[in-house]
């Protein structure tokens, strides 16, 4: 086969076909994510501010500035607690719920239908609903707890102030994320569980294994990929989501709920120090790394 006709070979035609199919997606994301992202990298190494088009290159100055800021460390810690805590809660609630939904029972469809609503409501608006439920005076949660005699009356010291007490505030914003995310985790897990062929489980049963052994040895490995990917994508969403904290507490009181996205937004956009804001948000990447590694691993495992 001559060199000049190489492009006529089936392999070459397959390559050409393949890259043609890939081109639109690759072009789209490189133009609209890659290029802007490169621009942000440049911003993070400049002293750009919102109104100043002429920026100087300052090297790693902005990253150093972030590391000198005490609030930054609080934000990193809160971001981790928020993401990991919410992830664990979503995992636990989601798994339990998925096993329950796996059983055949009457009204399963209705239950399933009701459970997905938190996920389909626009997040910015359902957070406002939570803001009203967490209100310091008119909280429906407190009203109910108070009627059940679990807490005191309004004005008494054991009236919880959901968004005001340091630990509780972080828990409350995390809880909203969990509320929104656990039905989705359940559905993803349900999908995983449905895909485990019953014969495999039956075979394992015949071998005389206990439920826990079956769960660990048969079910977990089978649904691991879906678990990984589901949680990786969910982690990315949770980590970079600004709206819950921004709308509920804006990081307060005293940085109790400050997370990297709110700190980056308040520094970079509201205060206008674009360069430092970009640098702070780039610190999300080391935190995203575990999620990326999980993704890559699962991807590699899935190679041909």
């Amino acid at each position: 086969m001559g060199v000049q006709t190489w492009w006529r070979t089936p392999t070459a035609r397959r390559y050409l076909f393949g890259y043609t199919l890939l081109a639109p997606a690759v072009l789209y994301v490189s133009l609209l994510v890659g290029v802007p992202f490169a621009f942000s990298l440049y911003l993070s190494m400049s002293d750009a501010s919102v109104g100043n088009p002429v920026a100087r290159f300052v090297g790693l100055e902005n990253f150093k500035a972030a590391l000198e800021n005490a609030t930054f460390y609080t934000a990193v810690r809160n971001t981790l607690v928020f993401t990991v805590g919410a992830g664990i809660l979503k995992g636990l609630l989601g798994t339990t719920l998925a096993f329950l939904l796996l059983q055949p029972f009457k009204g399963r469809k209705v239950v399933r239908a009701l459970l997905v609503i938190p996920f389909t409501l626009p997040i910015a608006v359902s957070v406002l609903g939570w803001k009203w439920m967490f209100d310091s005076q008119f909280s429906v949660i407190n009203w109910a707890l108070s009627r059940l005699q679990l807490i005191g009356a309004y004005g008494s010291p054991d009236w919880p102030v959901w968004l005001g007490q340091p630990g509780l505030a972080l828990f409350s914003v995390m809880f909203v994320n969990v509320w929104r995310g656990f039905p989705f985790s359940a559905i993803v897990l349900l999908a995983g569980l449905t895909s485990v062929p019953p014969e495999i489980i039956d075979a394992a049963k015949v071998d005389g294994t206990t439920f826990m052994q079956r769960f660990r040895l048969v079910i977990v490995p089978m649904i691991a990929p879906i678990l990984f990917i589901g949680s990786a994508f969910d982690t990315v969403f949770t980590l970079s989501d600004l709206s819950i904290v921004y709308l509920l507490t804006n990081g307060g009181p005293d940085a109790a709920t400050e997370i990297l996205p709110t700190l980056a937004y308040n520094t970079g956009i509201r205060a206008g120090a674009l360069g430092r804001g970009a640098a702070i948000s780039l610190f999300l990447f080391p935190l995203l790394l575990p999620a990326m590694i999980l993704l890559l691993r699962t991807l590699r495992r899935r190679q041909y």
């Binding site: 967490f134 310091s136 010291p157 009236w159 102030v161 005001g164 007490q165 507490t249 307060g252």
Partner: peptide
Amino acid sequence: MTPEVFSWDDAS
């Protein structure tokens, strides 16, 4: 004051 002031927004 009571601790609720830690959670207040502009409208509270």
